[in-house]
């Protein structure tokens, strides 16, 4: 699989990352290097094998339904560049 310059721009947009035009070529090459490296795994025959999600063999443990956290709005908002009336304030989002 080869990544082209347009795909780099699209992924950058979806991730809201700014990639300058003069960096597109380099980023594209890096992507392709990584993909080529990972593609080596294709040499292994995985026909009929379900994808492996985790190498951890234990089961997922679940939590009891109890409220243990909250009531810390100052801490939650501490890193917000802007806050108003206890809300995070962000530039107007228009659908």
């Amino acid at each position: 699989m080869a990544i082209d310059a347009d795909t780099v721009r699209k992924i950058a947009f979806l991730s809201r990352l700014k990639v300058d035009d003069d960096k597109i070529e380099d980023t594209k090459d890096e992507f392709n290097k990584i993909l080529t490296w990972v593609e080596e795994l294709n040499e292994v025959d995985t026909d009929g094998v379900e994808p492996l999600v985790s190498v951890n063999q234990t089961n997922l443990t679940m939590r009891k339904d109890v409220v243990t956290e909250g009531n810390q709005p100052e801490a939650i908002l501490a890193n917000a560049p802007l806050q108003e009336y206890g809300y995070f304030a962000v530039p107007k989002v228009i659908e």
């Binding site: 939650i76 809300y87 995070f88 304030a89 530039p91 107007k92 989002v93």
Partner: peptide, 10 residues
């Protein structure tokens, strides 16, 4: 709530 901002409640 504001003409230029969107407020977010988590």
């Amino acid at each position: 709530l504001d003409p230029s901002m969107t407020f977010v409640d988590l």
